[in-house]
């Protein structure tokens, strides 16, 4: 980076529309958030008990240019100051992704600004670089509504998934258990809140899978919770929802933290980066803090809540790395709902 001219700032615009947030952000020099606008549709989807793809796509079209304008205003810069437009190309809801991708392409064409397609999970991981500089090798625990993964990074822009869920994502299990307990959508934060008022007194399974595996499985745990509720109801007994939430959360966190600690040891990493919407979970945060407290060689990084849930600053942060590595997308860039994070490797 010797010839990199430091007196000229680099601004990367990020665009994220993979689910139910229309988000645009601008990140300066890869690490400083100068605008972070998120238009959430959660109120609109609440009545359906989940995100309805067609409705999400319609909202994105309504919000896109408004959010773009707000981001430029917040950063107090113009399009000509932008070095690259980074956009989530996948994974996510295809119709939702298409709005962001096509808006990004239109901007790229209109102003001749380079375009960079970014993997959504790479974005979640790079939210950490907005907190502190990343040190390699690093491990990231990604937990969200759609993902539960352990991703090993030997350097910037290189991602190796060493473990992933074989069925439900952790966030998905949270939402389903919340529904069983008749909690409002989205259920994750409600379970987290209840768990702190209860005791983990109900025995629930933990899926460790084969020895040495870093994969996860939460469907058995989810079924066990549903069965427990069902059986106590049939016996005419009642169960304290607080205790059930605490027991469920205990099981999820136990598996997540234990596997993460093992992975971090085996791969001898210098940092553990927490990523994804479930990183907002207080139980998970404190369990990780406790587990890594004594281990001073490994730095635990947990982004603030607004950078854990879906946002575009994380996409811009990941996009900055890719852009500076020479990654470019062309105007044929498409939404790819099943995109593999390895797209960013081999560069």
């Amino acid at each position: 980076m010797g010839e990199f001219i430091m007196d000229k700032h680099q601004f990367i615009m990020g665009i994220e529309t993979s689910c139910d947030e229309t988000a645009v952000a601008i990140v300066k020099n890869g690490r400083e958030v100068v605008a972070n606008v998120v238009a959430s549709q959660i109120e609109s989807h609440k009545r359906f008990g989940g995100v309805v793809p067609e409705i999400a796509s319609r909202h994105h079209v309504e919000q896109m240019t408004i959010v773009l304008e707000e981001a430029l205003n917040e950063a107090d810069i113009e399009m000509k100051d932008i070095s690259a437009v980074a956009v989530t190309e996948g994974p996510g809801l295809v119709g939702a992704l298409l709005v962001g991708v096509n808006a990004a392409k239109a901007i790229s064409f209109a102003h001749g600004i380079p375009l960079v397609g970014v993997h959504h999970i790479a974005g979640h991981i790079y939210a950490n670089r907005l907190v502190t500089e990343m040190v390699f090798p690093a491990m990231s625990l990604v937990v969200s509504g759609g993902h539960t993964e352990l991703v090993y990074m030997k350097e910037h822009g290189h991602f190796e998934v060493i473990g992933e869920t074989r069925d439900d994502a952790a966030g998905e299990a949270y939402d389903k258990v919340a529904r069983t307990l008749h909690l409002p959508y989205p259920g994750g934060p409600h379970i987290d809140r209840l768990a702190h008022e209860g005791e983990p007194s109900i025995k629930l399974p933990r899926a460790w899978l084969e020895d040495g595996s870093y994969d996860f499985s939460f469907s058995g745990l989810k079924s066990a919770v549903i069965n427990t509720v069902h059986n106590t109801e049939q016996r005419g007994e009642s169960i304290r929802p607080e205790d059930l939430a605490a027991s469920f959360q205990d099981s999820v966190i136990d598996v997540l933290v234990t596997k993460t600690v093992n992975a971090v040891k085996e791969y001898k990493v210098k940092q553990l980066l927490l990523a994804g919407g479930v990183a907002a979970n207080k139980g998970l945060r404190s369990a990780l803090e406790e587990a890594f407290n004594e281990n001073k060689e490994i730095e635990l990084v947990i982004p603030p809540l607004n950078l854990c849930t879906d946002n575009a600053a994380m996409i811009a942060a990941a996009g900055a790395i890719m852009f500076n590595k020479g990654v470019r997308s062309d105007l044929a860039l498409n939404a790819n709902p099943g995109l593999d994070i390895a797209i960013h490797n081999n560069i």
């Binding site: 067609e54 796509s57 773009l68 304008e69 298409l98 096509n102 239109a106 901007i107 064409f109 209109a110």
Partner: peptide, 19 residues
């Protein structure tokens, strides 16, 4: 087509706004 219309409208809105 919902998706088809959205692609055109998104591009048109973004182009008109940014230009």
């Amino acid at each position: 087509s919902y998706t088809g219309v959205r692609i055109g409208v998104t591009i048109a809105k973004t182009l008109a706004w940014t230009l």
